[in-house]
């Protein structure tokens, strides 16, 4: 080290390693953590804590640690003498509507998105503006639109009647089938209230979401793959079946899961289009926390159960999307 001995020592302020971090970089992460914990975590913890609370008749509720609410949800208050599955049935309807609507949305959005990714960049941007505008449109407006379209004295039923379609249906005999399905009264077709209208609206609600979620995966599809298949003699449908669909299988499933979670919380569409006997957990949460029942702990319990169902699906969907991106 004889050479180094003759060298000036570095200046004091310059001894920091290359790329010195911000001074506030030590404080910032912890401040952020506190903020995020307070606003993103505490509300959920409160819901969980209150779900173990107890309602006082004629008053509000008190902190407690009881499983009564959970018992009530799964088997009813009077268990084991009497068992009711009313709340489980509501959860069942939540799942039923959400599953059918999300699958429907993904199946119909897939060809659309596929066609979209083959357009020019400018055309894609224009379509995306349209899709995003429709995506951001509030559930209340969408339900409003479909309500007008499906209600008994205007929209489609009126159109059916005035164009003679109703009479034609009666003549062919399909009208009776519609009545069996609950989509007609003795005089005309009716869509309110029906599962058909509920699922249609819910599916419409998430359709733009499914386009947006499928878009990245589909736009990354390598066109040379299907071109290669074509040079080996595969027709359009064969290419779709053997190349395109298998390579988007995972994002397809992941998207369906995310939409399903989103639809678990649907409220307005259910209250307007579904029969009260077929209402969902989301509606029950609303009426318990802020509506007629005023039983916050039980509302919180139902929210926890919805949250758990949603989280399981989210984690699953996230993992699938990861997988598909890694490949």
């Amino acid at each position: 080290m004889s050479v180094a001995d003759g060298i000036d020592p570095p200046l004091g302020e310059e001894t920091a390693p290359a790329r010195a971090p911000f001074r506030w970089s030590r404080v910032l992460p912890w401040g952020l953590t506190a903020l995020i914990a307070l606003f993103c975590v505490v509300p959920f913890l409160l819901v969980i804590a209150i779900s173990f609370g107890r309602k006082i008749e004629g008053a509000a509720w008190v902190w407690d640690f009881t499983f009564e609410n959970y018992q009530r949800f799964f088997v009813g208050t009077l268990w084991p003498d009497e068992v009711t599955f009313l709340y489980l049935q509501q959860l069942g309807y939540s799942f039923w509507y959400a599953v059918i609507a999300s699958i429907l949305a993904v199946i119909t959005a897939l060809p659309f998105t596929l066609a979209l990714t083959r357009l020019s960049r400018r055309a894609q941007a224009a379509w995306l503006v349209f899709i995003l505008s429709s995506l951001s449109l509030s559930e209340v407006f969408i339900v409003m639109g479909w309500d007008i379209l499906l209600s008994n004295n205007s929209g489609l039923p009126a159109l059916f009647k005035s164009t003679g379609l109703t009479d034609w249906l009666k003549a062919v005999g399909w009208f009776d089938t519609l009545r069996e399905w609950g989509l007609a009264n003795p005089r005309n077709v009716k869509f309110k209230t029906s599962e058909f209208a509920t699922i249609l609206t819910m599916s419409y609600l998430v359709w733009p979401y499914s386009v947006i979620l499928l878009y990245p995966a589909l736009s990354r599809l390598d066109p040379s793959l299907s071109e290669a298949a074509r040079t080996m003699g595969a027709g359009n449908l064969t290419v779709l079946r053997t190349v395109t669909l298998p390579s988007v299988r995972l994002p397809l499933f992941g998207t369906t899961l995310l939409l399903f979670v989103f639809l678990l919380g649907t409220y307005v569409a259910i209250t307007v289009f579904a029969d009260p006997s077929k209402h969902t957990t989301a509606v029950a949460i609303y009426s318990n926390v802020r509506g007629a029942n005023l039983n916050a702990p039980f509302g919180a319990t139902q929210a926890v159960i919805l949250l758990v169902s949603a989280s399981v699906c989210l984690v699953l969907g996230h993992t699938l999307n990861r997988w598909s991106e890694a490949r």
Partner: peptide
């Protein structure tokens, strides 16, 4: 100065600049 050497020294003229960050 964009990477720090694991060992060794860098001198410019008579000045040891091993620990001098890139922007200096």
């Amino acid at each position: 100065g964009l990477e720090a050497p694991s060992t060794g020294s860098i001198t410019l003229g008579k000045r040891n600049i091993t620990d001098l960050p890139a922007h200096k």
